[in-house]
Amino acid sequence: MTSHAAASPATGRGWPAVPAAAWVAPPLVLVLGFVGWPMAAVLGESVRDRDGALSFSSWSGVLTSAEFLGALGRTAQIALGSTAGALVLGSFLALVLAFVPFPGAGLAARLIDTVLAVPSFLITLAFTFLYGSAGVLRVVVTSVAGQGAQVPSLLTSPLGVILAEITFFTPFVVRPLLAGLAALPREQLEVAASLGAGPLRVLRSVVFPEVTPALAAGGSLVLLLTLNEFGIVLFTGAKDVITLPVLIYVRGAVSLDLPGAAVVATAQVALSLLLYGGYRVGFARLRARSGPEGASDAAVVA
């Protein structure tokens, strides 16, 4: 009976022990099938010409073209602008929800969370009703200044795309920042306030240094998502706003230049992986510098 009891935890009630490789194999096969194989197919397509022959001419032609360089610059502009705006707006909303008690704060936090479940094109559709050619802004301006008043086409400009992405991606900053603020010891705030520090100084010297991992996690996630965002740019109808995802669509679906689209897609994947690798290295150094407590808080929002 003793030997049976001792053998049960190791073998699972007498069942034969399953090698560790058997548990790793199924998810590994799924990853290779649904991620590895498509990526290998895209990479293979990028080194062929339109006739299917092996050629690296697409790489040199696409990566040095003004179209690709312009799309790369526009993608970086929109991604950086959207990330900066989401960090500013998300920090403000998180601080208000965490430190400013008001009726309905919990409901407001839940409403912000619901944006995470909304398709991105619905945000663009809402912007169309607000800032489109027949939107609320045009109606207000024409009713005040007359029918001949010029209303800027905000929605179809890079600024309109950035504003739409800020609106959609801000909750990705609010949620980890709220988790970081919830883990912040209130004693630190009370001690700082008792020593005469004002609210702004408390935020600058106490709060933000403690929630830096949360800001880094949220900002890095938003940067990666905006770098690869396609739906918002497409639904704004901004014909002059060509980002890398839009360029992939144009070359692959419109121009039927599959090798060129594969080159752009491979370059974008490489850029995303490079940014993600840089984020993980920087995040690991930040956790090591912040010590055990900072590491545990960072793990909550990583």
Rank of each mutant, 00 (worst) to 15 (best):
H4I: 13
T11I: 05
T11C: 07
R13P: 14
P16R: 03
A17G: 12
A22K: 00
V24Q: 08
P26S: 06
P27L: 13
V29F: 12
V29N: 09
L30M: 15
L30F: 07
L32H: 07
L32I: 05
G33P: 07
F34A: 15
F34R: 07
V35C: 10
W37E: 14
W37M: 14
G44M: 04
G44I: 04
G44S: 13
D51F: 12
G52H: 05
A53F: 09
A53P: 07
L54M: 14
L54A: 13
S55A: 10
S55T: 03
S57F: 06
S58I: 03
G61Y: 12
G61V: 13
G61S: 12
G61C: 07
L63G: 01
L63D: 10
L63R: 00
E67S: 06
F68W: 02
G73S: 12
G81Y: 02
T83G: 14
T83A: 10
A84Y: 01
A86S: 08
V88W: 06
S91C: 10
L95Y: 08
L97R: 00
V100T: 05
A105M: 02
G106A: 10
A109P: 06
I112S: 11
D113Y: 01
V115A: 14
L116P: 05
V118G: 05
P119A: 09
P119M: 13
L122F: 12
L122H: 09
L125E: 11
A126H: 08
F129I: 08
G132D: 11
S133Q: 12
V136C: 07
V140F: 15
Q147W: 15
Q147E: 15
Q147R: 14
P152D: 14
P152W: 13
S157P: 11
I162K: 07
F168T: 08
F169L: 05
T170P: 04
T170M: 13
V174N: 14
V174Q: 10
V174F: 06
P176A: 12
L177Q: 04
L181K: 04
R186S: 13
R186D: 14
Q188W: 03
Q188R: 11
A193D: 12
L195T: 06
G196S: 06
R201S: 15
R204C: 04
S205K: 00
V206H: 01
P213T: 01
L215W: 00
G218P: 00
G219F: 00
G219H: 02
S220I: 02
L223W: 00
E229Y: 03
E229W: 03
I232Y: 01
L234D: 10
T236R: 01
G237Y: 01
T243Y: 00
L244N: 08
P245F: 12
Y249H: 03
V250E: 15
R251G: 15
G252F: 14
A253V: 13
D257P: 07
P259F: 06
G260L: 12
A262R: 02
V263M: 06
V263T: 02
A265S: 14
A270F: 09
L271F: 09
L271E: 09
L275Q: 05
L275R: 06
G277A: 09
G278Q: 08
V281E: 09
G282K: 08
A284H: 06
A288S: 10
A295V: 08
A295S: 10
S296M: 10
D297M: 13
D297T: 15
A298S: 09
A299V: 02
V300T: 09
V301T: 01
A302P: 03
